[in-house]
Design a binder for these strands. Structure first.
Lengths: 342, 342
DNA sequence: TTGCTTGACAAAAACGTTTTTGTCTAGCCC
DNA sequence: GGGCTAGACAAAAACGTTTTTGTCAAGCAA
């Protein structure tokens, strides 16, 4: 009954107070000021639930966090920074972030959860993270006319809003660097292949090889979870081949650390006998031994971009097709790679 | 108008339909079943906004994510797993997680944000993370009669619900292990001292020393951000002292990795010349070189515990004083520590 | 029979806003 | 002076539920 009291204390009608507070033009400047002042004075805060019902808006952006790895017991830590960036932008506009989580790596359950999210009227907009090559979520969101921004691209014949890292360029750069160092047997330790980022990375890797007339060997492009364990396992399986790779490009720093462990177990010196490049420029990468050559990835900033884009989409200031932000990628050279051994 | 249509299609009143769906006793079993069936058939989903307004509940749990480090540009990655655990539990009960973020390390702004969260009617309950020794947030939540669970203890004369790790025991175990290995000059590389966990860890360290009649030296207990950079810096400042420490107990694995880097730069062999113990059992700790001796910390599981406690508090099935869960801590011995050098 | 209780449902109020539509006055033009 | 417009505010409807209160018949005891 709060706005009622406020209106009463001002001798105005509820509607005038509401319109004054929401900045409508049909309230005189003097009245508006009086209302705003009094509202502040008595500490009036519009009830969000009532507001939502009245305006038909939820003032919330939804996101479904993907579980990391196959155990489903953790969330990829990258997302906390992404969400931090999003919240930083949407919070001042009065929006909040409604987080759900996908318990397991299960596309069907994920779709159901997603549909509930959309259809249930929980949110005004969506953040779709970790896109797949073919991603049913985009179609669902579109069908429900729910504004969204995808973090990562996907295959779609319709325009849609996306923010992505230039994965292809990143892996082209990394692979080219290794080629320039004289490596010819370069393996790719990639993430799960259903995710678009893995496809882009693979493409970058393949193109770098192709530009030197080298034929990429599919058995040297492996996929696994984005964990140290998977990196370790995949690297090991590559090292026992003859001839073995002399260099590894990894989908994340975590995988790179796993690969490094495997190389070390095989008695190889990192940066001399074998080269490893990671991705993400995690805070650790500068402090490990040897410091990891990796690719810089500004997750927090990307989150901010996503947040701004979502707000503009909600206000219909822009169209989905206007949101195509490809984060430039920078290689951070350190000591985990070096000239190819003879 | 959805429930209206559903009611109409059944020839029942809105109230009966509502009560049937919400499991009230004054609806006959037959009618209830008929309603539930039809609701499912026509895909009826109660509008959350209306529900919130009608019931005076928001069906949301609020959390304010603390920024990591002093830059405020990232969120501590630990929290994504904690939130994952919380969501896993509250989701099936129809609750969602509303996330906000604290842009900078600024207690005043944090309090304002927090108050808005509580007073604004955004949430039914709160998750208060990274508690301080004196934490204004608890008083605010209590004053607003908002149920909450604190992740981490604090100094308070009132009972409150908390879930915490046994930080004291963890650091007692770690320090004792080093003492057993013959170390006498053990330094503590701790987190920011305003946080309660840092106090508990310090206490564990001090008590372990005291139990061997060793007098803890305050200049050997340093505080810093929970980052590799801080761990590196603090460790360096300790290594130039004479006599220098032969062992380091660190507040997080990240700090430990930083400390290890500093030791290596000083030409020390980890596990031989110097011992380092971390905390958190991060996925990396098993794969680094040498594998890191650390303490196991089940963040996801703790999140689940928090989620369950929150639900029970909201349903008033338990009192805040009933929620006192101290996660047992286990030391995971690996290779980053060893006998004290002569 | 009367009165009371109980079971099953319905009517209506309440939740606190926003939005739509309405009213009234003053000013202006012809 | 009549009609029109614009400005400023008010009344009332709408949003879609939940909750409170009401109704009515059947059953039962005295």
């Amino acid at each position: 009954m709060s706005i009622v009291l406020l209106a009463k204390s001002l001798g105005l009608s509820i509607s005038t107070v509401s319109r004054a507070l929401n900045g409508y033009e049909d309230v005189s400047a003097a009245t508006r000021e009086r209302v705003v002042l009094r509202a502040k004075a008595i500490g009036y805060r519009p009830n969000p639930s009532a507001r939502r019902l009245g305006a038909g808006k939820t003032l919330a952006i939804g996101v479904i966090l993907p579980a990391a790895g196959s155990t489903g017991q953790a969330v990829d830590s990258m997302y906390s920074s992404l969400l931090g960036g999003v919240v930083t932008e949407i919070e001042p506009a009065g929006y909040h972030l409604l987080a759900s989580m996908q318990a397991k790596h299960d596309a069907a359950r994920e779709t159901a959860l997603f549909e509930n999210f959309i259809r249930g009227g929980w949110v005004d907009g969506l953040l779709i993270v970790r896109t797949r090559v073919h991603d049913a979520r985009l179609e669902l969101a579109r069908a429900a006319k729910m504004p969204f921004v995808a973090y990562g691209r996907t295959e779609s014949d319709q325009p849609y809003a996306w923010v992505d890292t230039d994965n292809e360029k990143a892996f082209r750069l990394a692979t080219t660097r290794l080629l320039d160092l004289g490596h010819r047997r370069i393996a790719l330790i990639n993430g799960p292949e259903e995710y678009s980022f893995a496809q882009f990375r693979r493409r970058g890797y393949v193109r770098a090889l192709a530009s030197r007339k080298l034929k990429p060997d599919p058995t040297w492009m492996l996929h696994g979870d984005l964990t140290e364990g998977a990196g370790h396992e995949l690297c090991r399986s590559l090292l026992i081949r003859r001839p073995a790779p002399t260099a590894f490009v990894c989908a994340t720093d975590s995988m790179a650390f796993g690969a490094i462990a495997a190389c070390r177990e095989a008695g190889l010196s990192i940066g001399r006998d074998v080269s490893v490049i990671g991705y993400g420029n995690s805070s650790l990468s500068a402090f490990c031994d040897p410091p990891l050559t990796t690719m810089e990835h500004q997750v927090f900033e990307n989150g901010r971009y996503v947040g701004r884009a979502l707000l503009q989409l909600l206000r219909k200031e822009i169209q989905p097709a206007d949101v195509h932000y490809l984060e430039p990628v920078v290689l951070v050279p350190r000591k985990s790679d070096g000239p190819a051994p003879q």
